[in-house]
């Protein structure tokens, strides 16, 4: 009951923020409010027990997205130019799409409805009840993500790779800024960052390798690794970070992660199994070795982490090293 009340209040917050962002011409305010939007979404994910999603939202929303938005605002202007004429057609399209979506929710099962199709399906029940005996990994989300649905995750990693490549192509030729942006030169920021960066990296490692047991995994850890480097780049300057993590190497890591993921799958083929069938990874002859699942998921998650980390850092480099137009 209490949880219901909290959920309703949080959704009300989201609603208010969405309206304020839509009406605001001050883009800086919009960026700040979208930061709050992401924080509230993470609270909602936690309440709905989607801990892994909340983790991703936490890492991306708090760590990277506001940073990228601020850099972009710095490159352009922070006031939205007023519309030339009031546009009726886009409003109609928006209202129509919204109406269709609301109409569609009528067919969706209520939240947590045990009669819902998804809870009755054989696949779901197999995942929930047999994943531990098949892979000996306590976190079902990790098993589904990296083992049962390994193909899908390979696809997702490829999407991240493609996005990074697209940004590299679009913003490929970095226009060096003539006047380097001023350093903050603030001892509080500098010392605070120095103290926190090691712990962020340590926590990222924990998230990366503890994903089998608790919330987390390659996606979340990759973003957190990148956030540590982004923090370094902001407190000193992106050029200092370039010395620590050269763009040439980082760009190659984007591809290496996907390659590692796919290589695990192909190695499974050579061992006589199916693509991404980890059971055969450690087996000798006919005897299957249950630890194969562990090793497979560990390697695959490492691939995901590498790609996400490198893609995020590439985004930061491409935007932060760009001079004002």
């Amino acid at each position: 009951m209490i949880i219901h009340g909290i959920t309703i209040i949080l959704f009300l917050f989201l609603y208010v923020i969405a309206i304020v962002i839509g009406r605001s011409r001050n883009l800086f305010a919009a960026v700040m409010l979208s930061g709050i939007f992401s924080l509230i979404s993470a609270c909602l994910f936690v309440i709905m027990d989607a801990v892994d999603v909340a983790f991703t939202e936490a890492a991306v929303g708090a760590g990277v997205s506001t940073v990228l938005m601020m850099i972009v605002l710095n490159l352009t202007s922070d006031r939205e130019s007023p519309p030339v004429q009031p546009k009726v057609f886009p409003l109609l399209v928006a209202l129509l799409t919204g109406g269709v979506l609301i109409y569609a929710t009528k067919d969706m099962p209520a939240f947590g409805d045990p009669e819902a199709l998804i809870h009755q399906s054989q696949t779901t029940n197999h995942y929930l009840w047999h994943s531990f005996e098949e892979s000996h990994i306590p976190n079902v989300v990790t098993t589904v993500l990296a083992s049962y649905r390994g193909y899908d995750t390979l696809g997702e990693t490829t999407v991240v790779f493609t996005a990074a490549v697209a940004v590299m192509l679009l913003l490929g030729h970095v226009r060096e800024s003539e006047t380097p942006p001023k350093l903050i030169n603030d001892p509080i920021a500098l010392v605070g960052a120095k103290m926190l960066i090691p712990y962020i990296l340590l926590f990222a490692l924990y998230v990366q390798f503890h994903g089998d047991f608790g919330p987390g995994g390659g996606f979340q850890a990759g973003v957190m690794f990148a956030a540590a480097f982004v923090l370094h780049g902001m407190v000193l300057s992106p050029k200092h970070t370039l010395k620590a993590a050269p763009a040439l190497i980082i760009e190659k890591l984007v591809a290496l992660g996907v390659l590692l993921y796919a290589a695990v799958g192909i190695y499974c083929l050579f061992k006589g199994g199916n693509f991404l069938e980890y059971d055969v990874l450690l087996s000798h002859g006919e005897k299957p070795n249950p630890h194969g699942q562990h090793i497979g998921i560990l390697l695959v998650e490492a691939g995901v982490g590498l790609t996400v980390f490198a893609a995020m850092l590439t985004l930061f480099y491409k935007f932060a090293l760009r001079g004002k137009a």
């Binding site: 909340a54 983790f55 506001t66 710095n74 998230v207 956030a227």
Partner: peptide, 21 residues
């Protein structure tokens, strides 16, 4: 765990504001 992530990374956005605004 999630609260920890926020505690560690919360201020990164603020640093970005100070740096790029």
């Amino acid at each position: 765990d999630i609260a920890l992530v926020y505690a560690l990374m919360n201020f990164i956005a603020i640093i970005a504001v100070l740096r790029y605004r």
